[in-house]
Amino acid sequence: MAASQRLLVMPDDGAQAVVDWIDQAQSQLLLKQFKLQSEAIEQALLRAQQRGVRIRVMLNPHTSGGDRWNDEAFALLQGWGVEVAWTSERFPVTHEKSMVIDGQAALIATFNLSEKYFTETRDYGVVSHDPRVIEQVMAGFDADWERRAFEPRLDVGLVWSSVHSRGQMARVIDSAQESLRIQHPKFVDAVILERLVAAKQRGVKVRVLCGGKHGLSDWDVYDTFSSLRL
């Protein structure tokens, strides 16, 4: 594999980019997903199952508001004989969206595997062939699958929620010397807001893209707009 990383950009690359990637799997596929509602992805998983790929899927059981998006996909995969489980009860929700193919490449994405995210929303995914990244994503998957604690290494370029992510992101922001470009729907964390203000005060050019109320829970709207005014 020539490139160590590949960027997927949604909605430009669309579902087919992910389908093509799943279709490359020969021996093993690990999938952890917040929302699975794409027939194209489900059919790609079925094809992989039929050609003998061992597939393990973890789906988040419900949103923080209680919506159960994945019940239908769970039953469908289970009916096909795919190994499928709910994500770990250690977390109120598992928002991770990752996939590992044959232990050779890992996809870490902001997009759900749902038609909306392939056609309407701006999202990104990074396909990494870095062995350290792949090993860590697989280790995190196995820990959640087996319902045990996981302590990630923090020196391989991945940011892990929930315990480590605030400090990791603060250090990234604090390292900026010239510019910060930030694209995010919500700004509700005081520590991160303080680090952004401090970056601006030390002369860093800070630019922020926010989609307004789109995609925000009702309880996040006021904090986000207060932060944006600051």
Score class of each variant (00 low, 15 high):
residue 18 V to F: 02
residue 217 S to D: 15
residue 78 Q to H: 09
residue 206 V to E: 08
residue 40 A to D: 14
residue 187 F to P: 10
residue 3 A to Y: 05
residue 215 G to K: 05
residue 56 R to H: 11
residue 118 F to G: 10
residue 86 W to I: 05
residue 110 T to N: 06
residue 222 Y to D: 15
residue 211 G to A: 15
residue 191 V to A: 07
residue 174 D to R: 13
residue 183 Q to T: 10
residue 179 S to D: 08
residue 209 L to V: 11
residue 88 S to W: 07
residue 31 L to C: 06
residue 119 T to S: 14
residue 226 S to N: 13
residue 179 S to I: 02
residue 15 A to T: 04
residue 64 S to E: 13
residue 6 R to M: 12
residue 13 D to P: 09
residue 169 M to E: 12
residue 163 V to A: 14
residue 18 V to P: 03
residue 139 A to R: 06
residue 162 S to F: 10
residue 96 E to P: 04
residue 5 Q to H: 15
residue 108 I to S: 04
residue 59 L to M: 05
residue 201 Q to M: 11
residue 194 E to G: 13
residue 8 L to A: 03
residue 128 S to M: 03
residue 84 V to C: 01
residue 150 F to V: 00
residue 216 L to E: 05
residue 215 G to E: 10
residue 228 L to F: 09
residue 192 I to T: 12
residue 134 I to E: 01
residue 164 H to M: 11
residue 20 D to S: 10
residue 155 D to E: 04
residue 71 D to G: 02
residue 131 P to Y: 00
residue 76 L to S: 09
residue 215 G to C: 08
residue 131 P to R: 03
residue 101 I to Y: 01
residue 87 T to Q: 13
residue 81 G to S: 01
residue 180 L to H: 02
residue 218 D to S: 13
residue 179 S to Q: 13
residue 68 R to W: 05
residue 135 E to H: 07
residue 148 R to Y: 06
residue 19 V to M: 06
residue 26 Q to K: 13
residue 73 A to C: 04
residue 131 P to Q: 00
residue 180 L to A: 03
residue 36 L to Q: 02
residue 54 R to E: 15
residue 38 S to V: 06
residue 139 A to V: 01
residue 44 A to L: 11
residue 93 V to Y: 07
residue 132 R to Q: 03
residue 89 E to F: 07
residue 133 V to M: 00
residue 135 E to C: 07
residue 180 L to E: 00
residue 158 L to H: 00
residue 155 D to L: 00
residue 100 V to P: 01
residue 163 V to R: 11
residue 217 S to R: 14
residue 132 R to A: 00
residue 81 G to M: 01
residue 148 R to F: 06
residue 19 V to F: 06
residue 195 R to H: 08
residue 193 L to H: 12
residue 39 E to P: 08
residue 209 L to P: 01
residue 121 T to P: 05
residue 45 L to V: 05
residue 98 S to R: 07
residue 173 I to Y: 03
residue 127 V to S: 10
residue 190 A to P: 11
residue 83 E to S: 07
residue 47 R to I: 04
residue 215 G to W: 09
residue 60 N to Y: 03
residue 223 D to E: 14
residue 213 K to R: 15
residue 82 V to Y: 00
residue 32 K to L: 15
residue 33 Q to C: 15
residue 114 S to R: 00
residue 101 I to P: 01
residue 81 G to Y: 02
residue 74 F to A: 09
residue 40 A to Y: 03
residue 165 S to K: 09
residue 159 V to K: 02
residue 186 K to P: 02
residue 85 A to F: 06
residue 170 A to E: 14
residue 60 N to M: 05
residue 19 V to C: 09
residue 159 V to Y: 09
residue 102 D to Y: 03
residue 221 V to M: 11
residue 166 R to T: 14
residue 127 V to N: 10
residue 190 A to D: 14
residue 159 V to P: 05
residue 97 K to F: 01
residue 36 L to R: 01
residue 60 N to S: 09
residue 228 L to C: 08
residue 12 D to I: 06
